[in-house]
């Protein structure tokens, strides 16, 4: 049977306590060709005037957007899950939001977005789970794994809060577990390499 090379289309990153620095490095190092889109889900306090879009924009030429309801999904963009909403994907082209119950005390929930990305993007998704003191994200990452996507977990030894990456390693066998400082370059190379599925 002939195997088709699959190109990655989306990188989805989830993190909680201790993840912001590494997320900023991923953003600084984001693929500039504009063929990939990034979705970032960070646990944070609900503040209407979020600083994240400005913080991200100063580090990349890609367009940064905190998602509003039914926003289009476009390559070459960095999307941030808005505070106090779960971020879902209707299809490959449209986001939707959901203000339902918190999951693991969190809204946005990393699980919710990871599961949605797995369903819509399957094997063309890369899931990255970072530092955090919460069980959110492990289930979602295993969903990406089962859908054929590539899964990266920050080495718990390099994490400020190791609970979240440890939960993921207990739940699935990620494609790679690497220390925080190696993730940005690894991601960059991975994106450039089409893979077999």
């Amino acid at each position: 049977m002939a195997q088709n090379k699959i190109e990655y289309k989306v990188v989805v990153v989830g993190g909680s306590a201790g993840s912001l620095d590494i997320i900023l490095k991923i953003i600084s190092n984001a693929d500039a060709t504009g063929s990939i889109l990034y979705i970032i889900v960070i646990h944070r306090k609900n503040d209407t005037n979020s600083m994240l879009p400005g913080l991200f924009s100063s580090r990349t030429k890609l367009k940064v957007k905190e998602v509003e309801d039914k926003d289009y999904i476009l390559p070459g963009h960095i999307y941030i899950a808005p505070p106090d909403y779960h971020l879902l994907l209707e299809n490959e082209h449209t986001f939707s939001l959901d203000a339902s119950e918190k999951i693991y005390f969190s809204r946005p929930s990393i699980d919710v977005t990871f599961e949605s990305v797995a369903e819509i993007f399957g094997a063309s998704a890369i899931g990255v789970l970072l530092s955090g003191a919460n069980a959110d994200g492990a289930h979602g990452l295993s969903t990406i794994h089962r859908a054929g996507g590539f899964t990266i977990v920050q080495d718990p030894k390099s994490a400020e809060a190791d609970y979240m990456p440890r939960q993921a390693i207990d739940k699935l066998k990620p494609d790679i577990v690497i220390s925080a400082d190696k993730i940005p370059d690894f991601l960059k190379n991975l994106i450039l390499t089409p893979h077999n599925n």
Partner: peptide, 9 residues
């Protein structure tokens, strides 16, 4: 209704 959320529900 938006499908993604309805499915989750």
């Amino acid at each position: 209704y938006a499908r993604a959320s309805l499915k989750r529900r």
